[in-house]
Structure formats: C-alpha cells, structure tokens
Design a protein around this nucleic acid. Structure first.
Lengths: 268, 268
DNA sequence: GTCGCCGGTTCATTATTTGAACCATCGGTT
DNA sequence: AACCGATGGTTCAAATAATGAACCGGCGAC
C-alpha cells in the first residue's frame, strides 16, 4: 500500500459515532506506528483535510471537504439529479426513498426524500452507512457485483442487526441469482425491525454497479397494492437515474415487469 | 514535501472552470513526473477521491467528498451555523451576505444568503474562490494574518480584476493597519465592478483568522444609512459567528463602534 | 509520589518513491 | 499511407523518503 493510500485510509476511521479521534487511538485502529500516523495526520492537516482541536489534540475531519464536495457536485450533480428522482418517487409511493453509493465494503447514503403523507415514516440520515448483507440496497449491489467481491464481503463476520437478519453466507448467495433475474432486491426487517425495503442497483458508464436506489416503508403499512406501486415506480426511477448519471445497466439487466413478482412471503 | 501531501496537492488543480484534467496536463500543472502523478491519482481513485471518465481517461473529483463533507458537517456544523447568521444578516440589511474560509492562499466560499428585497442583488456561487488582494473579505483576512503570510501573498503578481482593483503591494499594506484598527474591511468595485462589499474576519479557538463574513451590495444602492446598518449588523453577526464556532477574536480585536466610521470616500 | 497513558520527537534502518526512457494508440497533416 | 506529436500507461535501477523502537515531558488517576 502506498503512502498516500495510508493517509487516506486514516480518514475512514472517522464516522458519525466516532467524529474525533486521538493520535494513539488512530494508531491502534489502523495498526500503523504512532510516528507514522502523526506524520500523515500532519500532512492531512496541512491541507485542511483534518484539524486538531482543544486540549486533547484530537483530530476531526477538516473544512476542505466542504469545498471539494461543492466542486464535485458542481462538476457531477449526482446528488441533485438523484434527489429529483427520489422526490418524485416518494410522492408516487408515499414512502421514504433514498439512494446510496458503494464505498469500499459498505454503502453510504447519498441523499433521500421523505413523503409527508403519513404520520410515521422511515427516517434516514446524511452519510448514513448501510451494510451490504443486511439491507435491501446492499443485496441489490451484491447481486450485481463481481463474484470475488461478493465472496470477500460474505466471508467476513456478518452482524445480525435484528432477529430477521440473514447471516448465513450460503443463504445470502442463494438469494442473489433471483435478485439478478428480477433486477430488484427486498429486505424485510433485516436491518431495522419493521422496515420493508425494496432496492434496485444503479450503474455507471462502464455498467459497474455503483450503488442502489431504494424505497423503505414500515412493514405494517405494506399491502399488495403498495408493493406493486413501489416496485413499478422504483424500477422506472432507478433506470432513469442510471441513465441521467451517464450510466448503463449491463446487457443482462432485466426489464422489470411488475407481474413477474407476486412476491408472496419470499423472505428477504 | 511528503508523498501524501503531493497526492493531496493534486486535488487543488480541480476547480469550477477546470473540472476534469488529463494525466499529462496534471503532470505539467504540478511539475511532477507523469509516472508519479499516475500512481498518486491511482491511489486517490482507489479511495473514491477522484474518478476517471470516458475515452480520454481524464480525472475528476470523486464521490467520496460528498460522504466526508456530510460527516464533517455533522461533526462541526459550520455551514449550518454560519448560514443561520447570514440569513438574519441578509434580512436586516436587505443585501447578499456570505462567509468564506481561508484555504491556502485564497478564500473559498462556505455559504451565502440572499435577501429578496430588491430586484437586483449580488450573486454568489458555492465553492466560489475569492482572492485575498482584491476582495473585502480578503483584505479582512490579510489584516489579521501573520506578516510573513501577508508578505508572501503580496509578493506574487496581483491581478487587476477591474480598473478599481488596487494592485500595488505597498498600497495594500498601507490599508491593513486601518482595517486592524476598526475590525472591518471594505472594497468598492475591486473584484467585480459595481459591488460594494464590507467584511469582518472570523477566528478559531486559537484566535487565528480562518475566514471572513461579508455583506455585498450594488454600489448604486449604497447610502450612508445602508452603510451604517451593514456595518453595525455585520460586526455583530461576525462576532456571534466566531463565538458560535467556538472561536475567539484576538485581544487586539476592536469592539466595532459605528460612530467610528463616517467612511466617506475612503477608497477600499 | 508514582504509575500509565497521552501527544510528540529522534535517527539509523529499510522499503518506497522516483523519473528517464519506453510502448501502444489515437487524430490530424502532409 | 506514412508521419508526427500528442495521449495514457509501464518499467527498473538509483535515490530518497517512510518507518518504528525507543525516548521525552506532561497530565490525571490512584
């Protein structure tokens, strides 16, 4: 691993829950030598990627990201384009919709839209992280990712977020062909209890899966009718999104036909 | 310069005007060897900091910044806090207000707020770059920055954005003591013709100047009364912003008294 | 007082970065 | 069609930068 990669890797230890980290902690987390971490963090700090605060001299993410994110969004208005589709999707379905991007071995939320039709709805957060094995979006991505990548993900310990989470690698592998065949994944209570989620992969210009678009509804509100609406509209919205982002579904990607999916009680 | 710094430096060549750059161009711009740039960009791409597109294999900023910016804003809601102050400020003054952060040798826009009171207003853009020598915000920052930094900035060629831009280093140096004394800078048509801008520096926890808050109005609309309103409200808003961001003005920083500043035709 | 941990620093050893030269490929020009 | 001058990408010996064990001084808990 190159030196630059090591520096960038350090940034991955910052999360919503862990927003500031001391030098020694960072060295432990990364397994690097303390002196190495010190020097790398110094370089990151010089460029505004991290900053040191207060008495403990802990590090946190720096202001440079705001500028670079604004430039990225100006050059490639992914968030803006996705949000336009999500807004329509939430209106049509009356439920929360969101889009997330593959980032290493997890999905991170790009943006989301609420429908204000019901008193309850599934809540989302910016930069929220979704696991690949326990969420509808994750399964959609796995189904359209290279086999070695899938194997790597599923060979690590799979955390059971709820009693309904499928944590058996073989069972998850078994789900993927069906997801590939219909171009859509679903997950019932796999990540959070009471959340029924449908997800469709999004592709880039090289037909690589880069993330997923999803609709999440409370389990208690799901009916055959709502399911049909979600599946139809989500498939359309996701296809438009892939295209508007300049991407192409792979040739094997199915045209979703709502009649194909009675869905019944097929878990996950 | 460490290897990590070199990689991070490469990111600085991307701007609104120059949003995608080829390998050879990047090597020329940075003065680094093509092979070096190739390897560094490869590492940046592995982490989603840049991505390569299309036939020309050009690079552009990657999606990782969206996630990291969201995390940064979650941990340190600078933009949110600044925007709250700017919104009030624009309402009180009836003019466009904005805040920008020092980033290397330039200021980059953090956020801004429009007043919808008049048919015309000064327009801003996300991630817009402001020069230190030709803008009110830049002068405010220079006045409260270490002398070596100021000298370094003023010893480079100073671009005349308009016929009114002051480009003589000595003349700019001469302005700084007065700005320090009153805690506020102004610029009339120095960056864009017809823009009359007032600016106050913002400080961090170590009393270092990290940026500026400003109000920009069309020259044609400026009256003694508007000037007095802007100066009073801007000084208050900037002080609140420094505090709410966890910072402190240096001990030498003056309490702004509107009566101190008849201002008349004192250029810049 | 003292123990343990913190951020920060040092310097000889070591492994990584570096860059000139090289390829294959593409478009435009002669 | 042959050529030219670009491009992105690759190689490998030489040079340089990264590394990490050990070491500080300081702080807080016991």
């Amino acid at each position: 691993m190159g030196t630059a990669s090591k520096a960038l890797t350090l940034l991955n230890y910052f999360s919503r829950a862990h927003s500031q980290i001391g030098l020694s902690d960072l060295a432990r987390l990364s397994g690097m030598n303390k002196a190495t971490v010190y020097r790398l963090m110094g370089e990151l700090a010089d460029h505004g990627f991290v900053e040191q605060i207060g008495a403990g001299r802990e590090y946190r993410l720096g202001p440079a990201f705001l500028r670079l994110a604004a430039l990225r969004e100006k050059a490639v208005p992914m968030r803006e384009l996705a949000l336009a589709e999500l807004t329509k999707l939430s209106e049509l379905t009356g439920e929360t919709s969101h889009m997330s991007l593959l980032n290493g071995e997890v999905l991170s939320n790009l943006t989301y839209s609420y429908a204000h039709k019901h008193g309850t709805m599934v809540m989302m957060e910016d930069a929220e992280v979704l696991e690949l094995h326990s969420t509808g979006s994750g399964l959609a991505v796995l189904a359209f990712s290279p086999a070695p990548f899938v194997d790597a993900i599923l060979s690590k310990p799979l955390i059971a977020r709820t009693p309904e989470t499928v944590t058996d690698p073989a069972a998850i592998q078994a789900l993927l062909p069906k997801i590939r065949q219909r171009g859509m994944a679903w997950s019932i209570g796999g990540y959070e209890r009471d959340v029924y989620s449908h997800a469709v992969p999004i592709f880039d210009a090289g037909s690589h899966c880069i993330g997923a678009m999803a609709v999440a509804a409370p389990v208690s509100r799901m009916t055959d009718e709502l399911r049909a609406t979600i599946q139809t509209e989500l498939a359309l919205a996701a296809r438009r999104t892939t295209r508007v982002l300049g991407g192409f579904p792979p040739d094997s990607f199915p045209k979703f036909k709502p009649t194909d999916s009675p869905v019944e009680s097929e878990l996950t």
